[in-house]
Write a protein that binds this DNA or RNA. Sequence first.
DNA 1: CGTAATCTTGACCAACGTCAATGTTCGTGG
DNA 2: CCACGAACATTGACGTTGGTCAAGATTACG
Lengths: 241, 241
Amino acid sequence: MRCSECPLRRRQLFHAMSAREVAMIGRMKREHLGVAAGKDIIREGGHGQELYTLYEGWALRYHRLQDGSRQILDVLLPGDTVGMTSVLLGQSAHSVQALTTASFCVLDGRVLPELFKKSPELALALTRTWFADLRRGDLRATMLGRMNAAERVGYFLIEIYDRLRQRGMARGGVSPCPLRGIDVADAVGLSRVHVMRALKELRNEELLDRERGNLIIPDFARLAAFTGYSSGLRVGKRAIL
Amino acid sequence: MRCSECPLRRRQLFHAMSAREVAMIGRMKREHLGVAAGKDIIREGGHGQELYTLYEGWALRYHRLQDGSRQILDVLLPGDTVGMTSVLLGQSAHSVQALTTASFCVLDGRVLPELFKKSPELALALTRTWFADLRRGDLRATMLGRMNAAERVGYFLIEIYDRLRQRGMARGGVSPCPLRGIDVADAVGLSRVHVMRALKELRNEELLDRERGNLIIPDFARLAAFTGYSSGLRVGKRAIL
DNA sequence: CGTAATCTTGACCAACGTCAATGTTCGTGG
DNA sequence: CCACGAACATTGACGTTGGTCAAGATTACG
């Protein structure tokens, strides 16, 4: 797969790049990596100098505590990049694992200083994307700190639906969702059983349903109001590596 | 206050810059802003194009929900910069308020693209700092999602102590801490009363105490072990704007 | 068609929230 | 230096939310 022919880059959501920029990223590319569901590609404490752009499938960025419990920090969707902390800070504080069968573009992170030098515009576009993700993280922290079970679950899932919609991977209130109960639980800070109770509540209120690996949101605006989610804060284009 | 004479920049923790870089930042500087305790300098939804570097005092970055409850997203200490989301994304999703009497360097954020162009090294150093903060945020999310009351409070406070220590503003297990019970509660996702109970537990275990606006940590390593905090992941120098 | 994974349910328990009364600290003005 | 008030901390009683356990139902997949 050549970067210049990458179909992911053509999607609406992503920042249009000059041929020169795409070529520069193409030169960073090392390999296209296929990964089986459940397998880790980045491990906490690792020192890798690679950047991974998720090309296809879903992945989870997570942190594991001494007692074995897991906090999911973010769900990665096609076009999302991980590995920057390891490249920039020398060590990764989180693991990343494929949730489904997935494939990644693997880039050489050591070229990053050169990229900053040769294309400040691209560096700035990337920075914008990072800050957009940071803002998403802030809102998720608010969810963890201040919401009850049903709101947390609803917020977490509507956010994912919205991100998929922006990528053209969901519409009409339906999207694929390979997350299991335990994954949702580990993301929103609840037990699996209680997540199931919250999902039942949301289903009874006709705010949200899950069916055979699909997420169903009958009325986006109503769920958004219930969870305090604002698709608002208009999403700019995302820079993709 | 000239940037070239700024005593903050001289502290160990901060990235040494070339005279040229300092001069460039100096040219971005608009004013030195004094703020009374409790006053907001950035408001959620605002469109300001200013960057604020906290010079003296403490500040809080927070998000307020419809029901009036507040989630504190981060505590800002001298040398920390805020306002980037507003500059880069056009709108701020959080507010920032002075916790104590404080002063800020106000910079013109519109110059940022120029800064990226003229000094890619500085841009990269800033990016490193942003990712270090992002990692801190990830760990705080883990705290919110997976820890019990005493661990949350201990984690939150030891992190602050550690950041102050890095800045040379705390040592020997004692540091100033103007945070009130309600501030801790709003940061760790608990009620004020329950935070007080957790503090009592920590005091009984001789892990942590508060006394007249001071934080006392008799045995850093023991509290770190209790809360799962790792000062580890060695802190690089921080770039300061 | 059978097995493993996941979901569902109910009973019970622990953690945390809420309320309200009391105590303490700190800043202010006399 | 003292008296006062406001803000903040402390405590106990009690209610609510979410966790845990375990058994049974359903679904996915070979």
